[in-house]
Simulated assay, not measured.
Amino acid sequence: MKNIDTPLGQHLASVVRYVQDNSKEGTKWYFDEIPEDFFVPSVYFQIPSISGSKVTLSSYKTTYVLNCWFMDLKDWDAYSRAENIRDSILIDNTVIPLIDMSGEYTGKGIRTGVPEIRKIDEGIVQLTISFDTYLTTRTKTEKMQKLYIAWNNAKKLVD
């Protein structure tokens, strides 16, 4: 099966980089686990959840959901920081700039879903960012991706 042109690591790295670039200076980043004496303000990136579905007879969609926990001394501060990232994504039309393996911007973007925010615990607010990738058994993945985009654009015109 042929994969899309961009490796998953670049997609995830791009989302993490976007959160980092749009966060408060001095924020501490956690990836594997949160230490008992964690620093605030901080953001904990959970391992993404992954689900899949069939799109056409020869193509598949994989949905990645990345939960980011914004941790601060007060609920409102954590909420404000998560809301700032959500608003940045919305202002950027739910497109996060794609970076290459060296960390440079490619001029392409990742289309995300509308980010969601919810309180997890005292001083912890979760921002959920999701995005889809597509796989096909055909060698020309670009055709399937263009068809899918065109179809979704057409559906928006009749809604």
Rank of each mutant, 00 (worst) to 15 (best):
V158W: 14
I110N: 01
E25L: 10
H11T: 09
L8H: 00
T141W: 12
F45K: 06
E116R: 07
Y105M: 02
I4W: 09
K140M: 06
D92P: 02
Q46G: 05
K2S: 10
D87I: 02
T136D: 06
N93S: 05
K54L: 15
F31A: 10
D87Y: 03
V15W: 01
V114Y: 12
R111C: 09
P97M: 05
V114L: 12
R138L: 14
N3Q: 11
T139M: 09
Q145Y: 07
P41Q: 05
Y60G: 06
T141N: 14
T94A: 11
I117D: 01
S88H: 01
K2N: 15
T27Y: 07
E33H: 15
M144Y: 07
F45P: 03
F70W: 03
N93I: 08
S59L: 02
L66S: 05
K108F: 09
T137L: 14
L57H: 11
S59W: 01
Y60W: 11
L157Q: 14
P48F: 04
S51T: 08
I117H: 03
N153K: 15
K54E: 15
V19A: 14
G113F: 10
T6Y: 10
N3E: 12
I99S: 07
M71K: 00
D121V: 06
M1S: 09
S58V: 09
T56Q: 11
K108I: 13
D37T: 14
T128P: 03
E116P: 04
T106V: 01
L73N: 14
A13G: 00
S130A: 02
K24Y: 02
W69S: 12
W69M: 12
N67E: 15
L8G: 00
G123M: 07
